[in-house]
Design a protein around this nucleic acid. Structure first.
Lengths: 184, 184
DNA sequence: ACCTGAACACCGTTCAAGT
DNA sequence: ACCTGAACACCGTTCAAGT
């Protein structure tokens, strides 16, 4: 039966999760889908186009999603806290991010990543601004909040053998919020 | 004239800085060095061995270096502050890190990165412990400090067009230290 | 419209032969 | 001891030919 672009994109997303963009190889993907390389080139101009399409899908699903979930919360402190929870809760979300971090240098990935990160920074900056911090301070706190997120996943990625407990996650989030909103 | 392993390692390090391990390709490297692929295989078993050797050199130079530079500072708060400065000051250091972050998924890179990060976390934890925090709190603060470092370079990498000023860096460091050592 | 299969380029790897 | 050059495998890409 005929395949569609989506089938290739789905398979590529799995590959990226496993090993970054380097793991997106047309021939193995074709084998996995039970078809040939020639078929692939009917749907996509080349390998880069497949990766671009996959990143596009990721950007839509995973970035706006979490932000939209918390954007309507009135209290800024609560909004930040919920965002941290949402974003650190879901393992798949984290791994999608981390799989892409692994390919951050890839010229295809860089611009997408830049957009996503800018969006996240901007949202966090706004939240801290709503707490009454000056723009400069809000920027620093937003950066620290984003770093709190990065460091958490870095540690998970590097020590997959000993995943921190749910309690540890809660304590870390609590302390992060407490510290970063101090002075508001 | 005869080349040595070091010549290949140096060239490989440059390539990693440019585009992660994916940029380490034997044939182009050979061309750059004015020799042939065959020559490469006299010095190294294969491409992986070259990358491993390059990572080894990086681990020795760039990880122990900064820590050693600050380890003998008495005052823990000062020690942390200096470490942040040292590690964020030098652009080349940051880019070596970031170049490798780009290949974090690479099975060759993962274990080296794990060691380096463990070492850094442990050192930071110790510093915060010396400030009198309980182990759990020290762990959280160490993670946040490491995140402060990661987020800084992430932002630089993503927006190479508008690098933050020296003043911004100073202000960010000052505020990070102030926040993370609060309560000691 | 969608796919196959053969072809070619590029890079990793091997190895016999050179100095 | 160190290097060359030819060979082969693997994957990206093209394309004429099939359904």
């Amino acid at each position: 039966m005929a395949l569609g672009k989506e089938d290739w994109i789905l398979e590529a997303a799995l590959a990226i999760g496993r090993g970054g963009t380097a793991a997106v190889a047309v021939e193995p993907l074709a084998k996995r889908l039970g078809t040939t390389k020639g078929s692939f080139y009917w749907h996509f101009a080349n390998r880069d186009a497949l990766i671009a399409a996959t990143l596009d899908a990721w950007e839509n699903e995973y970035t706006e999603g979490p932000i939209a979930q918390v954007a309507q919360i009135e209290e800024p402190r609560e909004r930040i806290a919920r965002l941290l929870e949402v974003v650190m809760e879901d393992d798949r979300e984290g791994q999608a991010d981390v799989g892409l971090l692994a390919s951050a240098h890839d010229p295809l990935v860089a611009p997408v990543f830049a957009r996503v990160q800018s969006r996240r920074f901007a949202f966090l900056e706004e939240c801290f601004g709503d707490l009454g911090f000056t723009p400069a301070v809000a920027r620093h706190r937003a950066r620290l909040a984003y770093g709190a997120f990065l460091a958490w996943f870095e540690q998970r990625r590097v020590h997959p053998d000993r995943p921190p407990s749910r309690r540890e996650l809660r304590a870390y989030q609590r302390e992060t919020i407490a510290l970063l909103t101090r002075g508001s």
